[in-house]
Design a protein around this nucleic acid. Structure first.
Lengths: 197, 197
DNA sequence: ACCTGAACACCGTTCAAGT
DNA sequence: ACCTGAACACCGTTCAAGT
């Protein structure tokens, strides 16, 4: 950190990395563009070249989060050819593990306005996450291990419990049991609800 | 609003009411103590008498939210003596209706740090909400309409899907089906998972 | 007890100017 | 193309002083 050249080199990547670290360690409220710039040794206006606004930086963090989430659950998903309960379990633990390891990021990913003029890439990345749930259901249905019905509707009954479990667990709501046991119960409940009639 | 007396009268209640409105209409990011003070015609330092910090105001909003949520679901819960699926349906729709009518408030309620030195009242109010879920399960079990097991563990398999559904629905994640249909599916899945073995 | 009004140390954003 | 450095209009918070 001796003598810094005029150009930072890769300020954009440095901003994203540092912001992601701050988000994970100190929460969304602690994110400040000026502090980021100070820490990286650039002027307060420098980030603007790479992120027109603070929201643009947050969107980029959320996008990266979805991409890493899809990557993590795809690894679990890769156990193709295995029975549905096994794949569900792997996918669920991958998702919950990701979420609990970086709750503020997940909060950002799912609080971003995916609706109006939000980043196109962000919506697409979120869609790829949903698609993984769809693939899991379709595979289970094709094996006769998951009840019939439109895959998107069945997938919602898988994603909602998992998303809700992580939300409750990381919110600190005083749930009267241990988190690990809770996840076992939630996964088992999903499996029962998905079982063929 | 002609000539305002030196004392506001009930600044605390006015701050809470206005903050709640701003939260619902413009989101958490639009909440500013100074703007609140301006709108109510008091000086920037005035809110401090009633809320030592902005976080204290947010905690008070979350507390009020939990109390109104418990009130709303208690009304649905009041259909005592009715079969479990019916009570589950009423409670679920009350919760989801509340959440989707004020998503930013629910975000605040479940993002507050319920863990460390957070407001004691807030933790207790959240606990009363969980207790409603427990009561629903215990009642269903006593009627033989809900599978056996520790009520707190079964209750989590009810609350998690509902909480997750509202989180996904209000986040704007591009789910491929209509919200209403989705809620029907989620409730049905919960009922299947709760059914006796 | 409750509020004013000024101060302090921060923000995000903008933009001429530098390299 | 990328960044500086100063400016602008905001913040939350603090605190003497007023009523």
């Amino acid at each position: 950190m001796e003598k810094r050249p005029y150009h930072h080199g890769d300020l954009r990547a440095a901003l994203l990395a540092r912001a992601g670290q701050t988000l994970r360690e100190r929460g969304a409220g602690a994110l400040s563009l000026r502090e980021l710039a100070r820490d990286l040794g650039v002027s307060p206006g420098a980030p603007r070249r790479h992120f027109a606004t603070k929201q643009a930086l947050l969107d980029a963090l959320a996008l990266d989060g979805f991409e890493r989430l899809v990557e993590a659950t795809a690894a679990a998903q890769s156990s193709a050819g295995r029975p549905f309960p096994e794949r569900l379990d792997a996918m669920a633990r991958a998702y919950v593990g990701f979420s609990l390891s970086d709750p503020a990021l997940v909060g950002l990913m799912f609080s971003a306005k995916h609706s109006p003029e939000a980043s196109q890439g962000l919506r697409e990345a979120a869609l790829r996450w949903v698609d993984q749930g769809l693939a899991l259901i379709r595979d289970g249905q094709s094996r006769g291990e998951v009840r019939e019905g439109p895959p998107d509707r069945v997938a919602l009954t898988v994603l909602a419990p998992l998303h809700g479990y992580t939300g409750l667990a990381s919110s600190g709501v005083p749930l009267p049991q241990t988190p690990d046991q809770g996840l076992d119960d939630v996964i088992a409940a999903i499996a029962r609800a998905c079982a063929p009639a």
